[in-house]
C-alpha cells in the first residue's frame, strides 16, 4: 500500500490532522461493515445452530442442523454432488476456452476491438432471467437445437427431461459466457514482454515449450484470480437452475443455492438454511485456501525475480 506526503517537522502534525478526516470518508463503509456484513455474518453462524423458523421461535440445538445435513438429508448429499459437478464442469471448461480463444486472438489482426466486443456480448447477460428463458426454449424437446440434430441425422436429446443431460445443458449456458475471462486473458497476454519470446526463439523453443515456460507463468496471476472468482460464483449458482428446470428432473439440477432458497424462503426453515449457507461458505474457504496453498508452485509474481 502506498502512502504519501513527507512527515517532517510541523508538516507531520498537519498531516496527522488531515488524516483524521479519513474516518469520515470511511464512515458509510464502516456502518455497512458492521450492520450489513459483520452482524449478518455472525447471526447466520448463530442461526445455523438453532431451529429458527419464521413461523416459530428460535432454540439452540447445537450441531443438530449439521448432523442432519451430513448424515440424514439425502437431498443435501445430492445437492452437494450437483454443485461440485456444476463447478467442475463449468469453471475449467470456461477458463480453458477463454484462454484458448484469447491466445488465438492475440496476434496482429485487423478489427481486434470489434471481435473482442462481439465475443464479450454473451457475458453481458450473466444470470439474467431473459437468457435463462431463451436457453429453456432452445433446448426444448421440440426446440431449435433438437431440430438441428434432426437435420444432421443425429438422435434427439431430452435436454431438460433427462436427468443425465439437464445439468450439463445448464452448464452450457455458463460456459457460453466465457467472454469476460477472455478479455482479461487477452489483456494479460498483451503485457507479456516480447523479449521473453525472442529469448525463447534463440533457445530454439517450440510453440508448446514457449506456452509452458513463457506464456503460462507470465499470465498465471490473472488465471489464479479468475479461477478463484469463477469458482466462488459457480458454487453459488441459482438463477439458471431455478428458472429453467426448477431443480429437476429427479433433482439433477438441485444445486445448493436452490436448496438454500427453498429451505429458507419456501419452507422458512431459516436455521437449517443458514447451516446450508455455511457449508457453501466452508467450501469456498477450502477451495480458496487450497488454491492459495498451491499458488506458490504455479503462480509467478514479477517481484519474485528480484
Amino acid at each position: 500500500m502506498k502512502t504519501n506526503g513527507k512527515k517532517t517537522g510541523s508538516g507531520r502534525i498537519a498531516y496527522r490532522k488531515r488524516d483524521r478526516v479519513a474516518y469520515l470518508y470511511l464512515l458509510p463503509w464502516l456502518i455497512g461493515l458492521v450492520m450489513l456484513q459483520f452482524f449478518p455474518f455472525f447471526s447466520s453462524l448463530y442461526y445455523s445452530f438453532t431451529d429458527y423458523k419464521v413461523t416459530g421461535g428460535m432454540n439452540w440445538i447445537g450441531l443438530d442442523n449439521y448432523i442432519r445435513l451430513f448424515t440424514k438429508d439425502a437431498d443435501f448429499h445430492n445437492s452437494l454432488k450437483v454443485t461440485v459437478l456444476y463447478t467442475l464442469y463449468t469453471v475449467p471448461l470456461k477458463l480453458t476456452m477463454a484462454l484458448a480463444i484469447a491466445m488465438f486472438l492475440n496476434r496482429d489482426i485487423k478489427g481486434i476491438n470489434l471481435i473482442r466486443t462481439l465475443y464479450y456480448i454473451p457475458s453481458l447477460f450473466g444470470g439474467s432471467v431473459a437468457i435463462a428463458v431463451l436457453w429453456k426454449l432452445m433446448f426444448l424437446d421440440n426446440g431449435v437445437i433438437n431440430a438441428m440434430l434432426t437435420a444432421l441425422h443425429l438422435p434427439n436429446i431430452q435436454f431438460w427431461g433427462d436427468h443425465r443431460y439437464a445439468l450439463k445443458t445448464i452448464c452450457s449456458l455458463e460456459i457460453w459466457q466465457f467472454g469476460s475471462s477472455m478479455v482479461m486473458f487477452l489483456a494479460a497476454l498483451k503485457n507479456v514482454p516480447k523479449e521473453l519470446y525472442e529469448a525463447a526463439d534463440i533457445d530454439g523453443s517450440g510453440k508448446i515449450a514457449k506456452f509452458i515456460h513463457v506464456t503460462l507463468p507470465q499470465i498465471s496471476p490473472i488465471i489464479f484470480f479468475t479461477l478463484i472468482m469463477q469458482t466462488i460464483q459457480a458454487l453459488q449458482n441459482f438463477t439458471s437452475a431455478f428458472v429453467i428446470t426448477n431443480g429437476g428432473p429427479l433433482k439433477s439440477t438441485y444445486v445448493l443455492g436452490m436448496m438454500l432458497y427453498k429451505e429458507g424462503f419456501a419452507y422458512f426453515n431459516m436455521g437449517y438454511a443458514s447451516s446450508i449457507s455455511w457449508v457453501i461458505f466452508a467450501m469456498i474457504v477450502v477451495v480458496t485456501l487450497l488454491l492459495f496453498r498451491s499458488s506458490s508452485a504455479w503462480v509467478f509474481y514479477e517481484d519474485e525475480e528480484k
Binding site: L26, Q37, P40, F41, S44, I232, F281
Partner: peptide, 27 residues
C-alpha cells in the same frame, strides 16, 4: 490517508470479496 487500523480494515475489505452473498442473505 494514513490512519489507525488502516491495514486491518483494508484486509477486511479484500476478504469481503470472497464472502458469499448466500451467507448474509438470511439474516
Amino acid at each position: 490517508f494514513r490512519f489507525r487500523g488502516k491495514n486491518i480494515l483494508f484486509a477486511v475489505m479484500i476478504a469481503l470479496l470472497m464472502l458469499p452473498n448466500s451467507v448474509l442473505m438470511i439474516p
